[in-house]
Computed example of a mutant assay.
Amino acid sequence: MEPGETDEAAVTRELVEETGLSVTVGRLVGHVERPAPDGVFRIFDYECQVTSGVLRAGDDASDAAWVDSATLHTLPTTDGLVEALSDWNCLPRG
């Protein structure tokens, strides 16, 4: 986040930068903490509705894709991601 930036503004900016998608930010669905070099990263996850754009990978990723639940379970993911999404009722349908 940039100094003085709200969560909504940060989510909107980061999604455009990292995925090419413009969104309307919705409710907070959950949060996690991950170790960081100087403490802990606090990550807040929000429900979003895509309003425009074409999905693309940002400069720190090799690919981006919309996937169903079965495909998600075959992909390498960060430890705890799928469990958190499941707990928050945010897994893709199907």
Rank of each mutant, 00 (worst) to 15 (best):
L72D: 05
R42C: 03
G58P: 09
M1K: 08
L75A: 06
T74L: 15
P92C: 04
V67E: 05
E14C: 01
C90G: 00
Q49W: 03
S86N: 12
L21A: 03
L28P: 02
D87T: 10
V29K: 05
T78H: 10
L91I: 09
V23L: 01
G30W: 04
D59I: 10
R93T: 12
S62M: 07
R34A: 12
G80A: 02
E2Q: 14
T19F: 15
H73S: 04
G94N: 12
A57K: 08
E33P: 02
R13I: 02
N89H: 14
D7W: 11
L85C: 03
V54Q: 06
C48N: 03
V29G: 04
A57Y: 14
E5P: 02
G30L: 09
L21R: 02
V50P: 01
P92R: 05
V50G: 02
D79A: 10
R42F: 07
V23C: 01
R34P: 06
D60A: 13
V50D: 00
W66V: 15
G53V: 02
E47H: 11
A64F: 07
D59M: 08
E5N: 07
D45Q: 13
A70E: 12
P3A: 15
P35L: 09
P76M: 04
D59A: 12
L91N: 05
T74F: 08
L28N: 04
W88S: 09
T12Y: 00
A84Y: 00
V29E: 05
F44R: 15
I43D: 03
D63W: 15
D7K: 02
G39H: 07
V23F: 01
D60F: 14
G58C: 05
L21V: 00
T6F: 08
G80T: 01
V25N: 04
R42K: 06
T78P: 01
L81H: 00
S69K: 11
L91F: 05
A64G: 10
T77I: 03
Y46S: 02
T12P: 00
T6P: 13
A10S: 15
A64D: 11
S62T: 11
T74I: 09
E83Q: 13
G58Q: 11
D45E: 08
T78I: 06
D68I: 05
P92E: 07
P76R: 10
G58R: 08
W66P: 15
E2D: 12
C90E: 12
V11R: 02
D7Y: 09
G39N: 07
L28C: 06
D59T: 14
T12S: 14
